[in-house]
Structure formats: structure tokens, C-alpha cells
């Protein structure tokens, strides 16, 4: 069970003076239960790719298949697939329209036909799994804080019970605590069996959280694979606009000194291997 994007390309405004190629032959596989990060400089095509996964855009060449079925443009089933792949937009709180948080969260499941008790159950589940305070349900979403709004937006997508959750820069505009809480929330959702696809600028969080990372530059895939592989590649071939985390640079310095540890190590591993190294001296 997976989403497979096979060599997809997309150009905005084809045939007009404003033509711009946003994706050039990108491939990506997202298995259920995986955490995949899409990183890249601003304008590299991350949002465009995210919208392809949700079938909002159809690739001009290449193909998208979801759970083994290739989705043809305009297919009757694309609505059903769109439910399976929940998409949380960049700054999702700008799509709020309802008078209460409850109505906002009810929007997606009711569009797919949930009514009455089922609907209520969906909302309650979404609220608890997104860590939202149930007391907020009857409040006006426009009166909430930034972090709370972001949670409501995510809950409103989770409420349609997707199998894959694609988030376009979910941490943009949040403070450090907000980012940490949101990251924990996504980790929990992933452990509950949801695939998480996170679009981000932040290489550091991508390296520490993901199973796979896709690095985009100018619409093309620079490197795609495990965090170790991506870190190795980026240390040797820096990509414009992507900051290599200090820890990775530090570890790469240690490796040059002859300490043999994976580039993507955590603090514990680093300390351990330094001690081992010191012991050997």
C-alpha cells in the first residue's frame, strides 16, 4: 500500500509568457506508516509536488498511482483517493470559514457523507489524536492562537480518516514550542499507522525524523533516500539554500579525524563513539 509518483513533470501556465517549469521528472514512493520529508529551497517545487500527491494537480508527464491503482486525470475515483491522501496546506488556518471549531472539523468528513453519530465520533477522534483541547470545540476558530489554529487545521484533515497525511510546511510561523509539539504530534500519528509526508525548509528536523528524504532543487530531484544517504550526499555536494545542520558538520569533521560513525548520528551516539575513540588512543 503506497503512493508512487513516477517521473512526474509539471509546468505552470504552459504556452503563455509566464510559463515556468515547477517539476522536472521527480519520482517518489510513500509507503504506509513511513515518514517522508520533501526539502528544498523556496520555489523548488515542494508545494507543487505535494499537490500532485493529493491529485489537485495532474502531472503533464509521468504518473501517480495510489494503493496500486494508477490515477488517470479526471477519473471518477480521484475523489475517493483524495480522501485517502489528506493534504494540509501551507498556512492552513487561512481556509477557515466556519463559526465554530466543531463545524470546521466536521467539514471534511461531512463532505464524504458522514452524518449524525458517525460524524460526531470522527470529530472526537480527530480532536483527541491531534491533541486539541475539547473545550475549544465551541469557540470561534478565528479567536484561537496560532498553534491552536494549526492543530484545528490538521484535525480538520485527520477527521476524514486519511491513510496518508501530506503537510506543506506545517511548522511555518510557529514558535519553538509550537514546532516541538507539532513534531511530536506527527510522530504519534505516524506510529498509529499513518504515512506522514512533510514538506519543509528545515533539513535538521527532516534528517532526524524521516525514513526517507527527497531533496528538490529547481524542480529536479537532487538526491532521494535514507537520511544517512542524503546527509552524506549534501556534505559533499551542498545545495543552494539548504543549511547543513551544525551537528552533521561536526560529525563529518569527526569522521575526517578517523572516528567511524554514521553522519546522521544523535547526540548519544556521538558521545559514545568519541569515548570509544579516546579509549583507543
Amino acid at each position: 500500500m503506497s503512493i508512487i509518483a513516477d517521473d512526474i513533470s509539471y509546468t505552470y501556465n504552459t504556452g503563455t509568457p509566464a510559463e515556468s517549469a515547477a517539476l522536472r521528472g521527480v519520482s517518489l514512493t510513500v509507503e504506509r506508516g513511513e515518514w517522508v520529508s520533501i526539502v528544498g529551497h523556496t520555489g523548488s517545487g515542494k508545494s507543487t509536488l505535494a499537490q500532485h500527491l493529493n491529485l489537485l494537480l495532474t502531472p503533464q508527464s509521468g504518473a501517480i498511482s495510489i494503493d496500486g491503482v494508477e490515477v488517470k486525470p479526471g477519473s471518477k475515483r480521484s475523489r475517493e483517493f483524495r480522501r485517502r491522501v489528506g493534504l494540509v496546506f501551507q498556512y492552513p488556518e487561512t481556509q477557515f470559514f466556519a463559526e465554530t471549531v466543531r463545524a470546521e472539523i466536521e467539514f471534511a468528513p461531512s463532505n464524504w457523507g458522514s452524518r449524525g453519530d458517525v460524524l460526531k465520533e470522527r470529530v472526537d477522534e480527530a480532536v483527541s489524536s491531534s491533541g486539541l483541547d475539547p473545550l475549544l470545540l465551541d469557540k470561534n476558530p478565528f479567536t484561537l492562537s496560532g498553534g491552536q489554529r494549526r492543530r484545528v487545521a490538521i484535525a480538520s484533515v485527520i477527521a476524514m480518516k486519511p491513510d496518508y497525511l501530506v503537510l506543506d510546511e506545517p511548522t511555518a510561523g510557529l514558535d519553538a514550542t509550537g514546532i516541538k509539539e507539532l513534531t511530536q504530534l506527527l510522530g504519534k500519528l505516524r506510529n498509529a499507522g499513518l504515512a506522514v509526508v512533510q514538506v519543509t525548509h528545515d533539513l535538521r528536523s527532516a534528517l532526524s525524523l524521516s525514513d526517507k528524504i527527497l531533496v528538490l532543487e529547481n524542480g529536479s530531484c537532487v538526491v532521494y533516500g535514507s537520511p544517512e544517504l542524503v546527509a552524506e550526499y549534501l556534505v559533499d555536494n551542498p545545495v543552494r539554500g539548504l543549511v547543513i545542520p551544525p551537528v552533521v558538520r561536526f560529525v563529518s569533521g569527526l569522521r575526517e579525524k578517523g572516528i567511524d560513525i554514521p553522519l546522521n548520528s544523535g547526540l548519544g551516539e556521538i558521545i559514545k563513539s568519541i569515548e570509544v575513540f579516546k579509549g583507543r588512543l
Binding site: Q51, P92, Q95, F107, N111, W112, S156, V157, M160
Partner: peptide, 16 residues
Amino acid sequence: EETDRILKAQISRGAD
């Protein structure tokens, strides 16, 4: 642009 974005966002939440 904004209309386009909101439209897409609501469609991805199943708006019909």
C-alpha cells in the same frame, strides 16, 4: 492566486 489556493484547499477537504 489566493482564490485559487483556497479553492484547492477546500477541494482537498472534499468540497463539491
